[in-house]
Computed example of a mutant assay.
Amino acid sequence: MKKIFRHIASVSLAIMVLFSTVSWTVDKHLCMGRVMDIALFVNADDCGMEDAMTAMGIEKMENHCCDDESFTLEGQDDLKLSWDDFELDHKLFLVVFSQSYFNLFVPVEELPVPHEKYPPPNLVRNIQVLDQVFLI
C-alpha cells in the first residue's frame, strides 16, 4: 500500500511540475458571436466565411462577423529557489522542522536514560494497595 501511494504521489507531483512550467495558448474562432473552434497550442480553424466570400466574388471586404481570440497562460521559467529567497521566519521554521524530523529516527538504544544511575527507593509498604488507588 505504501509503495502504491508513493507511486501515485510521484506521478501527481511530476504532472503538477509539467503543467506549471508549460505555457498554454488557447485560440478561439468566433463567428457571429458563437464559438466555432477552440484549439490548444495552434491556431483555431476558421468557419469558412472567407472562402465563401471569394467564391461569391466579393474581394477584400472586411469581415465583421468573424473574430479570432487567443490568450496565453505563461508557465513558470525559474524553478530554482535559493536560500536567500526565503524570509527569516521561513528559514527558522525549516531549520527547526528538519532538526526535529531527523531526531525522530534516532535509534532507541542511543537515547539517554535520565535516571539511570539513581536506584528506585525501597518500598516498605505498597501505598497504592493500602489506599486502594489504582491507575486504570
Results as ranks from 00 to 15, higher is better:
M36H: 14
D37K: 05
D37M: 03
D37P: 00
I38Q: 05
I38H: 01
I38W: 06
L40V: 13
L40M: 12
F41K: 11
V42P: 00
D45K: 10
D46N: 10
D46E: 07
C47N: 02
G48F: 01
M49L: 14
E50K: 13
E50S: 10
E50L: 12
D51P: 00
M53I: 02
M53A: 08
T54N: 12
T54S: 12
A55N: 10
A55D: 14
M56Q: 14
M56F: 08
M56L: 14
G57P: 01
G57W: 04
G57R: 05
G57C: 05
I58Y: 04
E59M: 13
E59R: 14
E59F: 11
E59D: 12
K60T: 05
K60Y: 11
M61W: 02
M61I: 05
H64F: 14
H64M: 12
C65F: 13
C66I: 01
F71Q: 04
F71G: 02
L73R: 12
L73W: 07
L73K: 12
G75K: 04
G75S: 03
G75L: 04
G75P: 04
Q76C: 11
D77P: 00
D77Y: 04
D77M: 08
D78S: 09
D78L: 07
L79Y: 05
L81M: 11
L81G: 00
S82L: 05
D84A: 08
D84C: 00
D85H: 08
F86P: 01
E87F: 02
L88P: 02
D89H: 09
H90Y: 04
H90V: 09
K91H: 03
L92A: 12
L92K: 13
L92M: 11
L94V: 08
L94K: 06
L94Y: 08
L94Q: 07
L94F: 14
V95K: 10
F97T: 07
F97Q: 06
Q99H: 08
Q99Y: 11
S100C: 08
S100E: 14
S100F: 06
Y101G: 02
N103Q: 13
L104A: 06
L104V: 03
F105E: 03
F105K: 03
F105H: 05
F105Q: 03
F105Y: 11
V106R: 11
P107D: 04
P107C: 02
E110V: 07
E110H: 09
L111F: 01
L111Q: 04
L111W: 01
L111I: 04
P112Q: 07
V113G: 01
P114T: 04
P114C: 02
P114G: 01
P114H: 03
P114W: 03
H115M: 07
H115N: 15
E116L: 14
E116S: 13
K117V: 01
Y118L: 15
Y118V: 15
P120F: 11
P120E: 15
P121Q: 10
P121N: 09
P121R: 14
